[in-house]
């Protein structure tokens, strides 16, 4: 009976806890992301690798925002099952969406803190953090890095154009 619990009950309980806690954290994070995206919506962020012609910058610097996220146990188990048959790993999608948007927001926050007006040449990079257990097989988490060139406009006029 105890063995049965240890083999099936415990992982199932863990799965349940991981699901509820994970869902709660994810919802909270999405709320925070949407709120901040609303606040920064008017802050220009573009992917051109050269500064748009009508921008006239007085100064510029590299800004970046990075976030490291981990998979919860529930998502990992479901993704493991998905890996058997293949297809979209739907449980990972919100996770990576959160990471991309959070990294962008952090980058914008980095720029705004120093009074920059816009960011161009924005790039996203990602890297996998290996698990320390199991010879580095398996994934402990993923890092998402957003970076770009932040500029201060020479005059407020330039920005409205």
């Amino acid at each position: 009976m105890l063995e049965l619990f240890l083999n099936f009950g415990l992982p199932f309980l863990l799965l349940l806890v991981a699901y509820f806690v994970g869902t709660m954290l994810e919802k909270g994070h999405f709320r925070s992301i949407r709120k901040r995206e609303g606040e920064y919506a008017k802050f220009p962020v573009v992917t051109f690798d050269t500064m748009p012609d009508d921008w006239s910058a007085s100064s510029g610097t590299l800004v970046s925002g990075s976030v490291v996220i981990s998979l919860d146990y529930f998502k990992r188990v479901i993704a493991g099952l998905r890996a058997i048959v293949g297809g979209r790993i739907k449980t990972y999608e919100p996770l990576l969406d959160r990471a991309r948007r959070e990294a962008m927001l952090r980058m914008i926050e980095d720029a705004r803190r120093d009074g920059y007006d816009a960011i161009f040449n924005v790039r996203l990079e990602t890297s996998r953090l290996a698990n320390s257990r199991g010879d580095g097989k398996g994934t402990a988490g993923v890092e998402m890095l957003a970076f770009g060139t932040a500029v201060k406009f020479a005059s407020r006029f330039a920005r409205t154009q």
């Binding site: 699901y19 869902t23 949407r34 995206e37 609303g38 919506a41 008017k42 802050f43 220009p44 573009v46 748009p52 009508d54 529930f74 998502k75 479901i78 099952l81 998905r82 048959v85 979209r88 739907k90 449980t91 999608e93 919100p94 990576l96 969406d97 991309r100 948007r101 816009a118 154009q161």
Partner: peptide, 26 residues
Amino acid sequence: MKFIPRQPREGINVSDTHPLVEAGTL
């Protein structure tokens, strides 16, 4: 060129299948 502020659209990168439905199906 005019910069048009826009918030990221929901439901493009994230499928709206409920995780439990996904789990149940699998």
